[in-house]
């Protein structure tokens, strides 16, 4: 198997990396661990991102598996959010952003010329750092996506999809009597769950979450984390987080980014308990970052 071979190569590299030496050299920042999985939902190969002259992401290779939660951690400015936003081409809106390499969804490179971003973003949904419901009613917030994509034909279907999405997002019981109130009237945690409901209403395959709990209190955070755990039954989820505890609670795999490099990928337990790379160890043990 190719994957086995790649893994073996990466394992070998570890031998060259001394835990004692200073790790500024780029040579020492090659990815270690298991970036490749079998039967992935999304694959990223040699992805580089440039903001104008700035080289923001260096040569990242990473897979996102099916029905798994992959957490991306790392110190501020390490490029994890930038990388996440490449996965549904949100960076397209930035004029001077340039991306090389290949990112594929179900085997199809999403940066190919014939790929339309509109259906892509329906397949790869996104939840943002700050809850950003539309300034519309709760109902309209959830119904908006299905409506523009033509997934619903009439009120009955819309009602149904709104209800199931809100139920999946664990918000139904709290809002079912006030669907016509503005989404912005909800609390922060509820708003974020509304945003999740809005995203899953379109029926995506992958959900990208960009620090979804950083603006929330611990109780709301716990609810979202439970929700993420439930959602992985149906979706692949990539979550960027500042909180290592959160990463360890919700994710199966963890990717550690450092200054634009993907340093280490592995099962969450392995990355936190037995990191292969000195930089990862420094970060997860709190010596750095």
């Amino acid at each position: 198997m190719i994957i086995e071979k790649e893994r073996a190569e990466l394992e070998n590299k570890r031998e060259f990396i001394s835990k004692k030496e200073p790790l500024v050299s780029r040579e020492n920042r090659k990815t270690v661990g298991h970036p490749i999985v079998e039967n992935p939902r999304m694959t990223c190969r040699n992805v580089n991102v440039y903001y104008g002259d700035k080289h923001a992401i260096h040569d990242v290779t990473l897979d996102i598996g099916r029905n798994e939660v992959i957490a991306m951690i790392g110190p501020s400015g390490c490029g994890k959010s930038t990388f996440l936003r490449c996965l549904n081409r949100m960076n397209d809106t930035i004029d001077f952003c340039r991306i090389t390499g290949a990112i594929s969804l179900d085997g199809k490179n999403i940066y190919d010329k014939d790929v339309d971003v509109v259906p892509l973003r329906a397949q790869v949904g996104m939840v943002f750092q700050k809850p950003n419901p539309f300034p519309k009613s709760i109902y309209d917030n959830v119904a908006y996506g299905p409506k523009i994509h033509g997934l619903v034909q009439n009120r009955v279907e819309t009602d149904e999809i709104v209800e199931t999405s809100l139920k999946k997002a664990g918000l139904w019981e709290e809002v079912k009597d006030r669907l016509n109130q503005p989404g912005t009237s909800l609390s922060g945690g509820q708003q974020q769950r509304l945003c999740i409901a809005r995203t899953i209403a379109v029926g995506p395959e992958v959900i990208l979450m960009d620090e979804p709990c950083s603006a929330l209190d611990p109780i709301a955070t716990a609810r979202i984390e439970d929700l993420i755990d439930e959602l992985k039954e149906n979706f692949s989820i990539a979550i960027v987080t500042h909180s290592m505890q959160q990463a360890s609670r919700v994710s199966q795999r963890t990717a550690y980014f450092h200054l634009g490099d993907l340093i280490e990928v592995g099962s969450t337990d392995q990355v936190f308990l037995n990191p292969l790379h000195q930089l990862t160890e420094d970060y997860v043990t709190g010596r750095f970052g």
Partner: peptide
């Protein structure tokens, strides 16, 4: 954030 939200659910 509003623009991102709209683009995020696949609005053109």
């Amino acid at each position: 954030s509003i623009r991102e939200a709209a683009l995020g659910v696949g609005a053109s």
